[in-house]
Design a protein around this nucleic acid. Structure first.
Lengths: 166, 166
DNA sequence: CAAGATTGAAAATTCAATCTTA
DNA sequence: TAAGATTGAATTTTCAATCTTG
């Protein structure tokens, strides 16, 4: 075997770990989305928007920040918020201090809806993810996957943090 | 605090592990897709189809099986294959023994293209995933995420296996 | 009638262009 | 001029209906 141009392949174990990430995420997401649609009439994507807003200070976030959080393009988020506004779960408000920006705000009705739906989603997470793992597994999983995610999160963590203008 | 109807929340650690899965997958996928598009002019989604076919016996898979593998609806796969056929990387062939079924077959040109593109993708996987982890991390990651994925994979594993008709 | 695949219509997402404000 | 958000056009994905074969 003459030495071919070295291709930087991965070892079996590296490949297995990477593919397990793809596979587990895909299967769990599909399942949770399916269950949420069937039992609560809401998309996992919409649900996630409500969750992020509910945990933000004053239940509000700039469109751009929210788009980053839910891993969606800005125009994609614009349309997703359109739908949530129509259903009365989110409100659009001008951002005081920067008139270019817009805040998406979780309404009382949106929070109410989230409270109704959350138990269904969380049951799914427990059933399809948590229930298979030990406490040690959970700690390792969070630690390992955080090491992967952090370097890609634009340098700093995910949260806008107190330094964010407006 | 009067005992409210018990909502089955998750603990902090459970939530952290679950969210780390969502976040790491999303960030890595976006990054790899971006890099592949920029440097190789191919979508991560298309790339994955080529990979699955290249690893299948005789480089061929039934449309349904392939759709399951890449987590896409049947009609979605039909259209994805349309594109790959147009570019000459995949061929459609009747399935001998079951005339309802169709095989997607990786062409020589498709295999060639895959060989060109793989190094770019694998470099990304190494850079954004593997490089942050120890050997123990990799083993734990594969073990844990497999425990999550397996129960959702329709009972048996992922591979069609030798028992598959046709 | 059920299974496998495809098609047309609808929904979701992205890209490029636009509009407003910093 | 750049940043933030939105819009129209194009792409991608899904749903329901259809067509063919078991």
């Amino acid at each position: 075997m003459t030495s071919a141009p070295t291709i930087p392949w991965l070892t079996e174990k590296e490949l297995a770990a990477w593919r397990a990430l793809l596979r587990s995420h895909g299967l769990v997401s599909n399942k949770l989305d399916e269950e949420l649609a069937a039992e609560a009439g809401i998309t996992l994507a919409d649900y996630e928007v409500l969750v992020f807003l509910s945990e933000a200070p004053e239940r509000r976030l700039r469109m751009s920040e929210l788009a980053n959080s839910v891993l969606l393009s800005r125009s994609g988020l614009t349309r997703r918020i359109d739908g949530l506004v129509q259903r009365g779960w989110v409100d659009r408000q001008p951002c005081p201090g920067d008139r270019r920006a817009v805040h998406a705000v979780l309404t009382d009705a949106g929070l109410e809806r989230l409270r109704e739906v959350a138990p269904i989603h969380l049951r799914g997470v427990r059933e399809h993810v948590i229930s298979h793992l030990t406490a040690e597994d959970l700690e390792a999983m969070a630690r390992i996957l955080t090491k992967i995610a952090d370097p890609l999160a634009g340098g700093r963590g995910d949260c806008p943090g107190p330094g964010t203008a407006c």
